Simulated assay, not measured.
Amino acid sequence: MSSPETFDIVVAQLGDNWTLTPVVFENEDYQLPDTPAPFVSVEIYGDFFDQASIGAGERDDNLWREGGEIFLHVMTPNGTGSRQARQYAKQLVNLFRGQDIDGVRFLDASIGAGDPGRSFSNYYAMTATIGFERDE
C-alpha cells in the first residue's frame, strides 16, 4: 500500500474533482445498486522507499523516494460496450497525469495497460493506471 501522505492526496484530488460516478477506495463499504451503474474502484500501491541520496549523517537525513501506481478501475454495466469506460478512464487520468500535487509527482499513465477490459458479475472493468513518486 502507499504511504498515508500519498493516499490522502489521491483521495483529495478525486474528491475535489470527480463527480461523474461514485468513487470507492480499498476496504470501503459500497453497496452495489440493484440496477448496475458506473462507479470507480481505486487501489493505490507504493510501499517501497528507495534511497535517493547518500552521505547524510543519519540514515533518515537522506532523501527517500516512494514510488507506486494508482489503479482506477472504471466499472460500467456489462453489455454496454467499452466506450463510456474509456471516456471515464481518460478523464480520470487527466486529473493526475503530469501533475505535482503537494510533492506527489504523477508520471506516466495508461488505459488498459496492455490488458483488455474484463467482466465481473454484472460489471465490466476498464483500468487506468498512473505512476507516481514522492520524496521524503
Rank of each mutant, 00 (worst) to 15 (best):
G117P: 10
G67Y: 12
G81D: 00
R83I: 05
L32Q: 05
D102A: 15
D16E: 15
L107I: 10
D16A: 13
Q91G: 03
G57K: 15
W64A: 01
A109G: 05
N17W: 03
V10M: 02
E136I: 13
G55L: 05
S82V: 14
M126T: 09
T127Q: 07
N122S: 13
T80G: 05
D34A: 06
V104I: 09
P36T: 02
Q87V: 15
F71N: 09
D16T: 07
A52T: 04
D61E: 10
T19I: 10
L107A: 13
S121C: 07
E5M: 12
N122I: 08
N94R: 06
S3E: 06
G79R: 00
V23P: 07
E5W: 15
P116Y: 12
N122L: 05
T80Q: 02
D29T: 12
I9S: 00
T127E: 09
K90L: 09
G67L: 06
R59K: 14
F120K: 08
R134E: 05
F49W: 13
Y124L: 03
E28H: 05
V40C: 01
R97D: 04
N62S: 03
V93K: 03
A89N: 00
V40F: 01
F48R: 11
D108N: 13
G46H: 02
L20C: 06
L20I: 04
R118G: 08
A85N: 01
V42H: 11
F96V: 06
P77I: 01
G57F: 15
D8I: 09
F132D: 02
R83W: 04
F48C: 11
L14Y: 04
